[in-house]
Simulated scan of single mutants.
Amino acid sequence: MELTITNLSKRFKDKTAVKDVSLTLTPGVWGLLGANGAGKTTLMRMIADILNPTSGKILLDGKSIHAMGEEYRNLFGFLPQDFGFFQGFTVKDYLEYVAALKDVPARETRKKIDSLLHTLTLTDVKNKKVIKLSGGMKRRVGIAQAMLNDPKILIMDEPTAGLDPGERVRFRNFISEFSHNRIVLISTHIVSDIEYISTKNAVMKAGKILDVGTTDELVKLAAGKVFTCTVPADRMPMYEVQLRIINQRNEGNNQVSIRYLADEARTNDSVLVPPRLEDLYLWLFPQEDSIKEEK
C-alpha cells in the first residue's frame, strides 16, 4: 500500500500554505514535524480529502483519492486538532453515532467500541457527557472515533495534546502495534512521542518538505551542533543571553548543567554530544524553543 503525494500545493487568496509537496507514505508510523504555520494541518486536511488542493494529486495505489470517494473514506481515519460533537452526547452515544456515520456494521459496533474504551482507559466514563470530560479524556475520545472503522490509513493532528505522560506512553505503544500493515501519519510538537516509534519522519517548514528520513538519518542534520557544559549558577543570566540553551539542570554547589545549540563550542569545557530528534527540531525551528516537552 502506497499513498503518493505529488506536487501538492494549496493557496488561500494571497497565502500559499503548502508548496509543491511530494511525499510517498508506506505502512508504518510517520512523524510530521514542523512549527506552527508550517502547513502541516493544511496538508493533512488534503490527505483526508476534506480540502481540495490548488494543484497536484494524491493517489492511493495509483488511484486518485478524490475519485475513490467513499471507497477511500472507508479506509481512512482522521483525528483533527478539534473535533465536533453534540453537547448532549455521552462518550458511548458519540462513538455509536460516529460508528453509524462510518457504516460500521451494527453487529461489530458494540464490540469495537468496548475494545477501544478499554484500550484508551475510557470505560469508567463511557456514560459521562463528552463536554464534561477533561482535555486529555476528550482527546482520547477523539482517538477512539478515528479508529472505529479499523482504518488502513490513520491521520492524527496533535493526538497527544492534553495527555499526561502515562497516557502518552500508552498511546505510543498502542499506535506502534496498530501500525502493522497500516499507514499512520502523526503531526506533533511533542517530538518524543514519535522519536522512537516512527518508521520515518517528514520535516515541514514554510509549506515545504525540507527532508524525509528515519530518526537516525535526520538527526545527522544536527550533528556537531549540540553541546553540554557546567556553568556557575550565578552566571546563568549571562549564558541565557549568549547561548541557545535547550535544557538545564541544577547540580547543586552553585553549578548548573546546560545543553545548548551552536555551530561551535562556546565555553572552554563544552563537550560535543550526539543529537536527538528534539535537538534537530529546535535547530530548524528556533522560534519554537519555548514549545518543548515538559521535563
Rank of each mutant, 00 (worst) to 15 (best):
D82A: 15
L120I: 06
A222K: 08
V184D: 05
H66G: 09
K126H: 07
L154K: 04
K15A: 13
F78M: 06
F174M: 13
Q255A: 12
K111G: 04
E288K: 06
A100R: 13
N181C: 04
N247M: 09
M147Y: 07
G166A: 14
D124A: 14
I65T: 12
I58E: 03
E96H: 14
Q87A: 13
T4E: 14
P232C: 09
G31N: 06
E167L: 05
L3Q: 08
V18M: 06
N247C: 09
T4S: 14
L280V: 03
W30M: 04
L60K: 09
A233V: 08
V18N: 06
L282N: 10
T42V: 10
E294I: 15
K57Y: 01
L284R: 04
L282Q: 11
N201C: 12
K13Q: 13
L117P: 01
N250A: 12
I131F: 03
I65W: 07
L272D: 14
T4N: 13
S176K: 13
G252I: 06
R11I: 05
I245V: 08
T230R: 12
V203H: 00
G135V: 09
S257D: 10
L59C: 11
V256Y: 08
F85G: 03
V226M: 04
D289E: 15
T123N: 10
L133M: 07
R110D: 13
T214N: 00
G39Y: 04
T123W: 08
P159R: 09
S9G: 06
V169S: 07
F227R: 05
H66S: 14
S179Q: 09
I246L: 12
G252P: 03
D157F: 02
I153V: 15
A262P: 02
V141I: 11
V169C: 01
K295T: 14
D263P: 00
V98F: 10
F171A: 07
R172C: 08
T26M: 06
K152G: 14
K292Q: 13
L282C: 10
E167H: 07
V91S: 04
G84C: 06
K295Q: 14
G31K: 02
K132G: 11
P159L: 06
V241H: 13
T267C: 12
G136V: 09
S257P: 01
E240H: 14
I291V: 13
N268P: 01
Y94R: 05
T90L: 05
L116A: 06
P237F: 08
L60H: 08
I65Y: 08
Y281I: 05
S176Y: 10
G69L: 10
A144Y: 09
R168L: 02
I183Q: 04
R170T: 12
T6M: 03
D93H: 11
L218I: 02
D93W: 05
L23D: 01
N181G: 03
V130M: 04
I143F: 01
E195P: 00
T24M: 05
R139Q: 15
V125E: 14
N268W: 02
E2D: 11
L221W: 05
S290R: 15
R244D: 13
H66C: 05
G207A: 04
L120M: 08
V169I: 15
Q87V: 03
S115Y: 13
S115Q: 14
N127D: 15
E158K: 03
G224D: 08
T228W: 02
L32Q: 03
L43N: 01
I58D: 01
G69F: 10
G37L: 06
I175P: 00
P159I: 07
M46T: 03
G252V: 05
I143N: 03
